[in-house]
Simulated assay, not measured.
Amino acid sequence: MVTGRSPAVVALGGGHGLSASLSALRLMSDRLTAIVTVADDGGSSGRLRSELGVLPPGDLRMALAALCDDSEWGRTWSALLQHRFTSEGDLDNHAVGNLLIVALWEILDDPVSGLDWVGRLLGARGRVLPMASVPLGIEADARVGDRLTTVVGQSHVAVTPGIEQVRLVPPDPPACPEAVQAIEAADWVVLGPGSWFSSVMPHLLVPELARALHTTRARLCVTLNLEAETGETAGFSAADHLDVLHKHAPELRVDAVVADPSAVEDTDQLARTARRTGARLLLRQVSRGDGTARHDALRLAAAYRDVFDDVLGDVDDRTG
Rank of each mutant, 00 (worst) to 15 (best):
E106V: 00
V2D: 09
G58I: 04
R127F: 05
S262Y: 00
L168W: 03
V96K: 02
L204T: 15
S71K: 08
T33P: 09
G192W: 06
D309M: 11
D109F: 08
G58H: 05
G137M: 00
K247D: 14
L121D: 08
A186Q: 08
P56F: 04
V118R: 04
R219M: 08
D90Q: 12
W105Q: 15
V118Q: 04
D59P: 13
A234L: 15
R280S: 14
A303M: 05
E164M: 07
A218E: 08
E227F: 02
N225V: 00
G320D: 14
A24D: 06
S29W: 05
V151D: 06
R84F: 07
D70R: 15
G114C: 04
L99S: 11
D116Q: 11
L48E: 01
E72D: 15
A279D: 10
A249G: 10
A34W: 00
E232Q: 13
G153E: 10
L55P: 11
L270H: 01
L27H: 09
A274L: 06
A303I: 08
A185C: 05
P207S: 06
D109N: 15
T33F: 01
A238D: 02
P250S: 08
V36Q: 04
R47C: 01
G89F: 03
P173V: 09
A8D: 08
A132M: 03
T223C: 09
L281D: 10
A24W: 03
R299Q: 13
R217D: 14
G192V: 05
L282H: 14
A34D: 08
E178P: 04
G137W: 06
L108Q: 12
E139Q: 12
T149P: 01
R147V: 13
T230H: 13
R318G: 13
G145F: 03
R31H: 14
L12D: 10
L122Q: 01
H156V: 09
